[in-house]
């Protein structure tokens, strides 16, 4: 799940280096921008500005990492799903996320980086992933809330990416969005079963909404005036809508869904403005968001440790597979020779 929160501040990678702007570059840049403006897709072998390439590598790989790390909070409930139908649905969902990670790493590889390198950046803590996955999933209702809210927010961000100027990313997103919207409906249906269930189940659902609401709003990233790369990414058509526009869209779509569930959004300032036709909501606590980005979220350490453990524990397996492939090749050569 991609979050625009990731393209905020700190990293300078997206700025084209001034020394590159020679006359020839300017001509290439001009042609590139014309193609983007004409809604042509940029493909891996096409010329592209270095900043464009770097921005995409960063964004696509962060998106891939988010899918992989995102398997953990939901995977936490696979062995405890309360019915076999729910167990199968959750397994399939988490598996889809692994699949999304795969296509996204492949899309990033078209830009000249290897998956091993990108995974290395995740494990070393250099690369970011969506902060939302640093929150815990203590109850079963969290599985519903993640599907409904987190996937719901991800869809708002991702649907416009299906029209991203970079072809491989746009095509990967088409497939991902289809699956995400299925997950979102599944999550909502799970919440509905809880909301219509026993008082204890309803309490579980409300508790999950209380914990996931604000983090879901933060998934859209800082306000437009705080977002570092917005203007350039818009011009490159990597980004189509501002963080605030998408956040508003999400709130407008989600509030009536919460009402239908009979649950209360944890925001006393939330109200519908009949004039604008939009919901107005309270101020977001960006201190919490920034602390999580710094590594101080409730599960930052556990998530990365789990990924590192899987990688380290699997080292002998990967080595064995490589050794076996080499032996087979050797034997085939011997046979042929």
């Amino acid at each position: 799940m991609y979050t625009q929160g990731l393209d905020a501040k700190t990293e300078q990678g997206a700025q084209p280096s001034p020394r590159l702007v020679t006359e020839q570059d300017a001509a290439l840049q001009g042609r590139f921008q014309e193609r983007v403006d004409a809604e042509e897709k940029i493909e891996p072998r096409d010329w592209m500005p270095e900043g464009y390439r770097r921005t995409l590598v960063r964004q696509i790989s962060q998106h891939a990492h988010s899918e992989i790390v995102g398997m953990l909070p939901e995977g936490n409930w696979i062995t405890r799903a309360p019915t076999l139908r729910r167990k199968v649905a959750l397994l399939a969902k988490v598996q889809d996320e692994g699949g999304h990670g795969l296509y996204l790493y492949s899309a990033a590889e078209t830009l000249g980086v290897s998956r091993d390198e990108l995974v290395g950046q995740l494990l070393s803590g250099k690369a970011k992933y969506s902060s939302i996955f640093n929150y815990p999933t203590p109850t079963w209702a969290d599985i519903g809330a993640i599907g409904w809210l987190v996937d719901g927010a991800a869809i708002m961000n991702q649907v416009p990416l299906c029209r991203c100027s970079y072809g491989p990313y746009a095509r990967a997103m088409v497939r991902i969005c289809r699956e995400e919207s299925f997950h979102q409906r599944q999550g909502y249906e799970l919440m509905l079963a809880l909301a219509q269930g026993t008082p204890e189940q309803k309490r579980m659902a409300q508790d999950a909404l209380n914990r996931w609401w604000w983090p879901s709003l933060m998934m859209f990233g800082p306000s437009d005036d705080q977002s570092a790369h917005s203007a350039q990414n818009m011009a490159w058509k990597i980004k189509r809508f501002s963080n605030d526009e998408l956040r508003q869209r999400f709130v407008d779509a989600t509030v009536p869904q919460a009402e239908f569930l009979g649950l209360t959004i944890p925001d006393p300032e939330l109200r519908f403005n009949a004039e604008t036709g939009h919901y107005e909501f309270g101020a977001i606590d960006w201190t919490e968001f920034n602390e999580i980005l710094k590594g101080n979220g409730p599960c930052n350490r556990e998530r990365i440790e789990a990924r590192r453990k899987a990688w380290d524990d699997g080292a002998w397996v990967r080595e064995a597979a490589t050794a076996h492939a080499a032996k087979r090749k050797q034997r085939a050569l011997k046979k042929a020779g």
Partner: peptide, 18 residues
Amino acid sequence: SEWCGHAPELEEDIALTN
């Protein structure tokens, strides 16, 4: 299913889950 998210490589994670 206990392996889901923890397998030695991504392809294998998906295969075991399958």
